[in-house]
């Protein structure tokens, strides 16, 4: 398997085996990435990936460790900006607007494209303050009652309200792992984003907590567009409508989840799904 390096990047672009199979663009896209390349210093992490994300769909990104799926996800709300030496080329559009445009501001972008991380990372503040953080910094709700309402709605949507309504002042770090992750989801949806990016949201959780989050995802799909990076093929199969398979920085195959899992076109996809590696 060739190593991904900028020096050999051009050669790989021409390599037939890495041309994406399946329909990369969608009819009603919320987000569209075209020919995205990401470099960490000299190393190329993403090679020429194009992918559309439709409204109100759950798209799962799968692939072996280090395949670039998380990197790609972090491009979608420019979280990679915080990493020193990271360079992104190509275009990513959110509703026709190029998010890597120099004039574009990341603050409103990230308010529109929220993110949930691999490890639950509640702030060391109260549960209430965790959820209220986003609305407060963006000035979405000034008055106490208004803010209370946003907090309650968000916690309800995240399926956490009944569990924490009596102890909103307790520290968010005191919750169980699954509850913490739902708190993080509540925190994200409190600013009413259009897209939610989730980077392996269940990898640090036990099976029961995982099941709750998965249920929640299905529920959230009605209002939000969701992109999930996952390690677990079963999870991808359960929650997503479409699936994208990444391999060594290339997007190998994308399509309806059912088709990908039943009838993979590419040899690599098939090997991964059948468990030859991963």
């Amino acid at each position: 398997m060739p190593e991904i390096q900028s020096a050999s990047g051009d050669a790989q672009l021409a390599d037939e085996s890495f041309r994406t199979i399946g329909k990369t663009y969608v009819d009603q896209p919320r987000m569209t990435a075209s020919q995205v390349n990401v470099y960490y210093g000299d190393k190329q992490a993403i090679c020429d990936v194009s992918l559309g994300i439709a409204r109100n769909e759950v798209i799962a990104m799968i692939g072996p460790s280090g395949c670039g799926k998380s990197t790609f996800l972090r491009c979608l709300n420019r979280m990679n900006d915080t990493i020193a030496g990271c360079r992104v080329s190509g275009t990513i559009r959110l509703d026709q607007q190029d998010i890597y445009d120099k004039r574009l501001d990341v603050v409103p972008l990230r308010a529109r494209v929220g993110m949930v991380f691999q490890k639950p990372n509640p702030f060391p503040k109260s549960i209430y303050d965790n959820v209220a953080y986003g609305p407060r910094i963006h000035g979405l709700a000034r008055k106490g009652v208004e803010l209370d309402e946003v907090v309650e709605t968000s916690l309800r949507r995240a399926g956490l309200w009944t569990e924490v309504k009596d102890r909103l002042a307790a520290p968010g770090t005191g919750l169980s792992g699954g509850q913490q992750q739902r708190l993080c989801i509540a925190r994200t949806i409190a600013v009413s984003p259009e897209v939610i990016l989730m980077d392996e949201p269940c990898s640090a959780l036990d099976p029961i907590a995982t099941a709750r989050i998965e249920e929640l995802l299905v529920e959230l799909r009605k209002n939000y567009t969701i992109a999930v990076v996952t390690h677990s093929m079963q999870q991808a199969a359960r929650i997503s409508q479409r699936t994208a398979y990444f391999h060594l920085g290339h997007l190998i195959e994308v399509g309806e989840t059912t088709r990908i899992f039943t009838n993979p076109q590419h040899k690599l996809t098939e090997d991964y799904i059948t468990g030859r590696f991963g």
Partner: peptide, 17 residues
């Protein structure tokens, strides 16, 4: 974009300066 989302977007834009 639904209404709530539009309102959020407007508020955020307004607060930026």
């Amino acid at each position: 974009m639904n209404e709530r989302q539009q309102a959020v977007y407007a508020t955020v834009q307004a607060s930026l300066r």
